[in-house]
Computed example of a mutant assay.
Amino acid sequence: MIDAVTGRVRAAQEAVARISAVPLMVRVAIFVTALAGLALAFPAEVLIGRPLLFLAVAAVLPAVGPRRLWPTFVALVMVGGWLLATDGYGRPVALWRLLAVAALLYLGHSLCALAALLPYDAVVDPELVTRWLLRVGAVLLGTAVLAVLLLQAAGLGGEAGYQWVTVLGLLVAVGVVALLGWLLRRR
């Protein structure tokens, strides 16, 4: 039993010694993105004391295990914090905060996808990460501009929120996922 523990400790030390800079920076970016998203989503009253420590631990989990369920867990916690802030604490829905939380969710998801492809000891050209982030930035910019234009065209926004818009958005998202799943199975 002691030999097994010693072997695992030695293997962990060797793995830490082989970590290269770019995969480590991607994982640090995952942590920072997740923590920023959680801090924006949750009400300020909740972020005092011990809950902040729990949110920091939750932000570390997808950085350590991007292939596991942790990115989904943090995204659900972030959405739960947003719902707690708007429904539980009565914080008005501000467009800038909504767009920022959505952007951080997408950025965190995309960085986790990149980190899942990169082994810890991979030698990666930094241009790969730059192109990846530029593509993510283009998607985020296009989505934000389109969202604001559609909200203005529909006359929605301001202080009043519309629950039917949220439900319609969720139905569209589920429909897109179902369509993509059907297309992938067909191929």
Rank of each mutant, 00 (worst) to 15 (best):
R186S: 11
V77R: 03
L184P: 00
A94Y: 03
P43A: 07
P126C: 08
S110K: 11
Y120E: 14
L52D: 01
A100I: 09
T166I: 09
Y120D: 15
T72K: 04
L47H: 04
Q163Y: 13
F31M: 05
R185L: 12
L141M: 10
V177P: 00
V28F: 13
V22G: 04
R185S: 08
V57A: 15
V174P: 00
S110F: 01
D87Y: 11
G161D: 05
G81Y: 01
V101S: 05
A39P: 00
A39E: 05
L69R: 07
T143S: 13
D121M: 03
A85P: 06
L76E: 02
G161P: 00
L52P: 07
R67S: 14
A102C: 12
L134S: 08
V176K: 02
A122Y: 01
V93W: 09
E159V: 11
G158H: 10
R186H: 12
L99K: 01
R135P: 00
R131W: 06
A58Y: 05
A36Q: 08
F54C: 04
R68S: 13
A102H: 05
A113W: 05
Y162K: 09
A154G: 05
I48D: 07
L76Y: 08
V124Q: 01
Y162N: 14
G80W: 05
F31C: 06
A44P: 02
L180Q: 13
R185M: 04
L40M: 08
V74G: 00
V79W: 05
E159K: 02
L140D: 07
A138V: 14
L128P: 03
L168K: 00
V177S: 08
A29C: 08
L55C: 02
V22Y: 03
G108D: 03
P62A: 04
T33Q: 07
E159W: 11
W182D: 10
L146I: 06
A147C: 07
L128I: 15
L105E: 12
V177L: 14
V46R: 14
M1N: 04
R18C: 01
A34H: 07
A41L: 09
W70G: 03
V5D: 06
G7Y: 07
L146E: 03
G175S: 09
V136M: 03
L84S: 04
T130H: 12
A160H: 09
A122G: 06
V57C: 12
P51Q: 10
A58S: 08
L83C: 09
L141P: 00
A36W: 07
A178F: 12
M25A: 15
P92D: 04
A103I: 03
L133G: 05
L40R: 00
V177G: 00
L114F: 07
L69A: 15
L179S: 06
A63T: 13
A29L: 14
Q13V: 10
G169C: 09
Q13N: 07
L61G: 04
L95E: 13
W132L: 01
G65A: 15
T72R: 11
L55H: 08
Q152G: 07
